[in-house]
Amino acid sequence: MSAKAVSSGNTLAVSRRSKRSLANSKWPVLILFLPPALLLFTVLVILPMGEAAWYSFYNWNGYGSPTQWVGWRNYQLIFRNSAFTQALINNGLIVLASLCVQVPLALWLATMISSRIKGALFFRLIFFLPYVLADVAAGMIWRFVYDGDFGLVAGISQFIGVEPPFWLADRDLAMYAILGVVVWKYFGFHMMLFIAGLQAIDKSVLEAADIDGATGFQKFRLVTLPLLGSTVRLSVFFAVVGSLQLFDMIMPLTGGGPSNSTQTMVTFLYNFGVTRMQVGFGSAVGVVLFVICVTLAFSYKRVFMRND
């Protein structure tokens, strides 16, 4: 008891001393290390952000300097644009697919192959492979798969003797075809997160549940899942942020079409801002996207990841 008190007194003294010396030596370190980072951050992050916010109040095509001040018109145009509404809906759909299909699927697979059974490593590799592919490459591969003239889908439908479908050319189905690719591409990544989380769970807890006579499902629901909570929350966070950024897979697949049915916010920015040389409008979209991202990220971290 007394030995403990002495030792804690020592650490207190040490920490107080180090605090004082830190206070003394803080400035040279700050002066040496902060400016490069601060400069880079300012020049590459803060400044462009401020510029985008500034441009968003102009009607400007990128030539010369912006002169035509239009106030909030660009923002009004964005929210009146049906393609933007569709993009918001699609981003929501992607989040939904991630939550309802991707994360459960990844969790299920992870629980199956996290233990050291035969072939587990092989399957981990197989399931993780799509994630290793570049998004653009994955998009192009799936464009061929979905192609109704020469693709895999065409081959299969010819084999069963039906007219080949053109999913990517169908307004009502194209987005679901893309959701399929998104799930295929990223479930492996979430699975790996879960495997890491599962391996961190203390085996003795599960053993204790075994001794108490818990069934497999009970063990999963009452022991594994609660202990995996922080990983699940992290995984969902990645899914949400990833959905907001989804761009490079959509471009080779559909380019946002047909009839803007597969736009996401970023493809909307590209198609309506960059390719149309509407720098002012595009900047406004960027600002909206930024606000949505920041709000989502911070509130999610505040609400769900507070204790992680």
């Binding site: 109704g148 003239d149 007219e163 080949p164 053109f166 990517l168 050319a169 169908d170 307004r171 194209a174 559909t254 079409g257 047909p258 009839s259």
Partner: peptide, 11 residues
């Protein structure tokens, strides 16, 4: 042609 809404110019 079928699927023309998904077809590029090259297609």
């Amino acid at each position: 042609q079928n699927g023309y809404l998904g077809a590029t110019w090259n297609d």
